[in-house]
Design a protein around this nucleic acid. Structure first.
Length: 575
DNA sequence: GCCGTTTTCGGCCCGACTGTTTTCAGTCG
């Protein structure tokens, strides 16, 4: 991917520009904003150039003619002249140095100028020699801060999975609630927006005794150390490897504070611009007019209303067009977890699951599901104890029996997670496939095929007209394995033509399709199935992560097939 | 360097905490 590297270069250019005396703060911001935009694209910039030329780039948020030229320069030559020239003046590894908590470009430059520090290794050396405390603007505390910053950086691997962050946040919130020091607690930040990975936790509190709240939080067993402690804001480092910000806000400002701290930053910048245009000022304490009179503060939706907008759900707040829709009163009514009636991707002891079919069915029924689809692995997945043609027939017989036994509780559909083989054929014969209520197919092997061959493989499978659902379509594992490479647009179009549904896999490591790809697939009017891919009964509750992804992808109830009652679903599967 | 429902020029989001300071710069979100 070029995107990541270009974003890094733009960020470094911003850092270096910040050091020159005649720098323009807005130019610096422009580079940072562009870096954010490029980083979050689902498409490689070279693909955009290929399709729509440089003009395609200027369509992007925060990218004008000059930056588009620079991106093009990078694609063509592998270099950006402006960056190379700045780098000659400032041969400093800003990218890694500024990842240290508390170290920004200016102090990094001071370290370079005075002590010739150009990377983290150099910094460690001068720290051990205790040289930094002698520099102007630095002291003993700064030295300690840098030492700790390096340790934190090395012990953390950056962002952690939502599936790990959200339960931790909920645990802390529960403890705060029972502490007796708080009137109200809510979750904010990227965790509240259900982003697939989380860099830190943000928790908002109303309390008349903020000191006690801050004391309480810094002493929790989940906390490793305190980074900053004030009356309104405290930051702690959690043992799970991310930081957590606690903000105490006045009751009357709670709505404004939520609006501000839920983010995203991009969304907020735009909302504030709208406020300014209306002659208002918006900060975390409220919406004010020019005379400083409060227009709205206690209720979040009231703030949006006063700005002439609908209330956008937190999952949508990424500045991906939701603000424009909110102004036009056209926000979609997003899917809710209660809309889901069944779960169509579930494993049992027949392959690599931990529980029996019956146990899974009863657990699902107790969560209110009215049907499930059993999808144990096919024979190519021998490491996962995949079923051969004989065993899958026994599997179906057993499902029939359990269906009879549980007929008043839940319905079980017959299927199997059938491998899409290297040549695009399926891992079961037509004879077996015909006995299934629906066919769930997925890719598990030969993941590093080139883009062209992989596209052909998937298209062959889709065009066979035997598949109902493609499970975890990109096969990525967050922080572990890159998505497989294929032409998304071609596959989405073929899926539409063949009535193939795309899965949104709720497993925290997968979340596949992700929000970006859902938004893209939605352009093709595709249908989706939000499933848990459960391998044990407790996994059935992972559904909320898939719902989070679906909401981030702007899906409504009728986009998702497992909101349908059983009878309608069966009809949909009969092609 | 970007951008346009007052604008192709002149704006561009806002506040908290820390350390080293005697009133503020740097960093962060």
């Amino acid at each position: 991917m070029n995107n990541q590297r270009i974003a890094e270069i733009f960020n470094e250019i911003a850092d270096m520009l910040e050091l020159s005396k005649d720098s323009n703060i807005f130019e610096i911001r422009a580079y940072k904003k562009a870096a954010l935009t490029i980083e979050s694209l689902s498409e490689d910039v070279s693909e955009i150039i290929e399709k729509d030329g440089i003009e395609g780039l200027t369509e992007l948020n925060g990218i004008g003619k000059a930056l588009a030229e620079k991106i093009n320069e990078f694609i063509k030559t592998g270099k950006i002249k402006k960056y190379e020239e700045l780098k000659k003046i400032y041969p400093i590894d800003f990218k890694n140095l500024t990842r240290i908590q508390g170290l920004g470009p200016k102090r990094a430059y001071s370290l370079y100028k005075n002590l010739n520090v150009s990377n983290i290794e150099d910094l460690k050396k001068v720290l051990s020699e205790k040289k930094i405390q002698t520099l102007p603007g630095f002291g003993k505390k700064s030295e300690e801060e840098l030492e700790n910053g390096i340790k934190l950086l090395e012990s953390s691997k950056g962002r952690i999975l939502l599936g790990k962050a959200l339960p931790e946040a909920e645990l802390i919130i529960k403890k705060l609630k029972s502490s007796g020091f708080v009137e109200k607690v809510v979750l904010a930040g990227s965790t509240r927006r259900m982003k697939e990975t989380v860099g830190d936790l943000d928790i908002l509190v109303i309390s008349i005794t903020p000191e006690k709240v801050m004391d309480f939080i810094t002493k929790l067993p989940e906390v490793e150390k305190t980074i900053a402690k004030g009356i309104t804001k405290t930051t702690v480092w959690l043992k799970i490897g991310i930081s957590c910000d606690i903000r105490v806000v006045p009751k009357e400002s709670f709505g404004a504070a939520q609006q501000y701290f839920i983010g995203s930053k991009d969304h907020n910048v735009k909302v504030r611009q709208i406020a300014v245009k209306k002659g208002y000022k918006l900060n975390e304490y409220g919406l004010y007019d020019l005379k400083g009179k409060i227009i709205a503060n206690e209720d979040e939706s009231n703030i949006y209303e006063k700005l002439g907008m609908q209330y956008p759900e937190p999952e949508m707040r990424e500045n991906r067009g939701e603000i424009e829709l909110a102004k036009e009163n056209k926000l979609p009514k997003l899917i809710r977890i209660d809309d889901i009636l069944g779960d169509l991707h579930i494993h049992s002891k027949y392959s690599d699951g931990l529980n029996t079919i019956e146990e899974m069915a009863i657990a699902a029924a107790s969560l209110g599901r009215s049907y499930i689809g059993m999808t144990d692995h096919s024979k190519s997945e021998y490491v996962a104890n995949g079923m051969d043609e004989k065993r899958v027939l026994r599997y179906f017989d057993e499902i029939d029996k359990i269906n009879e036994k549980l007929k008043n509780k839940i319905k079980i559909l017959k299927s199997a997670e059938t491998d899409i083989l290297k040549d695009g054929s399926l891992d079961f014969s037509d004879k077996v496939l015909e006995k299934m209520d629906y066919v769930l197919a997925s890719i598990h092997t030969n993941l590093n095929m080139n883009r062209q061959d992989m596209t052909k493989r998937i298209l062959t499978a889709i065009n066979s007209y035997k598949i109902n659902i493609i499970a975890h379509p990109t096969a990525r594992l967050i922080n572990q394995r890159q998505p497989i490479e294929f032409d998304l647009d071609k596959v989405f179009q073929a899926a539409k033509d063949n009535n193939v549904v795309l899965e949104i896999n709720s497993y925290p490591e997968r979340l596949d399709l992700n929000d970006e790809n859902i938004l893209r697939a939605k352009e093709f009017n595709l249908l989706f199935s939000i499933n848990t891919d459960s391998h044990r009964t407790s996994n059935l509750e992972l559904l909320r992560y898939g719902i989070g992804m679906a909401k981030r992808g702007w899906l409504i109830k009728k986009d998702v097939i497992n909101t349908l009652p059983y009878e309608n679903l069966i009809k949909l599967f009969k092609k």
